[in-house]
């Protein structure tokens, strides 16, 4: 189990994260917050790229800094900006990282083949990566993170820049990987985690807001989300979440305490909660 105990991270006087306490068990954790809320700082601390100013991060009760390479051996990490060598092929790059991850040379080739198959890159395994699309590169990134069969898989904004088709493919891969490991996924795109995350971790103003299942998160707005016709006199009521086109014209989706005139109560979704929690003045 991975535990974050009262972790604070400061950069000089700036507090990037304040008193974060979390516990991770097997499953997918979606770290959801707007840009600048501290998602990447938290991810980097979990990946040992940064260390807390105060507090501690423990793996099975031992500080990850003390575990050193033992922790890195069970860690898979895909950074926000996946770095690669353009003139190398995925196979060469994976072989190289396998050496750095100290994976037994006897099993490396077989492992690489399995991973390339998992991310559907077998046909492109020997092509130079300079010609790869963003989605293909992200798949190489996933493969490298999985080389050591990690117990903790950290993916920092893995779907940024992917087209809808690639995003769906990516979600399916993550879903399959999460059966016997901790997958921590940061994003500000709600739809990426709505379907696959077991737990949603939300940060606000550099502090932990919640760590709950998507259902529980949605309960926060239960009975407060209404759909109002755009022509309604009460269109200014409440906080505007989104709008959509219906058979009867444009419909506004609003969050408010009291039911607006002509308003129809609807079930809140994760995007509603996200927009409501991070409305102007309440961002990260």
């Amino acid at each position: 189990m991975l535990s974050v105990n009262h972790v604070t991270k400061k950069y000089g006087k700036f507090i990037a994260l304040e008193d974060i306490t979390l516990e991770f068990e097997n499953g997918v954790y979606g770290l959801l917050a707007p840009n600048g809320a501290g998602k990447t700082t938290l991810m980097k601390m979990l990946a040992t790229l940064l260390f807390p100013t105060s507090g501690e991060i423990l793996w099975d009760g031992i500080k990850i800094t003390e575990l050193g390479e033992q922790y890195r051996d069970i860690l898979g990490y895909l950074p926000q900006k996946f770095g690669y060598y353009k003139n190398n092929t995925p196979r060469q790059f994976l072989r190289y990282l396998a050496a750095l991850k100290y994976i037994d040379v006897k099993v490396v080739e077989e492992k690489i083949e399995q991973l390339l198959e998992m991310v559907s890159l077998c046909e492109d395994a020997d092509k130079k990566m300079r010609k790869f699309s963003g989605g293909m590169l992200q798949r190489v990134g996933i493969a490298q993170a999985m080389l050591n069969d990690p117990k903790v898989l950290i993916l920092d904004e893995p779907t940024a820049g992917l087209d809808p088709k690639e995003r769906v493919r990516f979600r399916n891969i993550i879903h399959n990987l999460a059966k016997d490991r901790i997958v921590i996924l940061s994003t500000h795109i709600v739809s990426d985690i709505e379907t696959i995350a077991n737990q949603i971790v939300m940060l606000r103003q550099h502090k932990l807001l919640c760590c709950e299942s998507p259902k529980e998160v949605c309960k926060r707005l239960q009975g407060k989300v209404y759909e109002v016709p755009a022509e309604s006199e009460n269109r200014e009521t409440g906080f505007l979440l989104s709008e959509r086109q219906s058979e009867n014209g444009t419909v506004l989706r609003v969050a408010c305490e009291e039911p607006p005139k002509d308003g129809v109560l609807v079930a809140p979704n994760l995007e509603d909660v996200f927009l409501y929690i991070y409305r102007d003045g309440m961002e990260g």
């Binding site: 990946a47 040992t48 790229l49 890195r72 990490y77 996946f82 100290y102 490298q144």
Partner: peptide, 18 residues
Amino acid sequence: QNGTYEIKMTCHYTLREL
């Protein structure tokens, strides 16, 4: 330039050893 350092920092043998 390549941004490869972050991944290397999380490997068994890190960028420091390299």
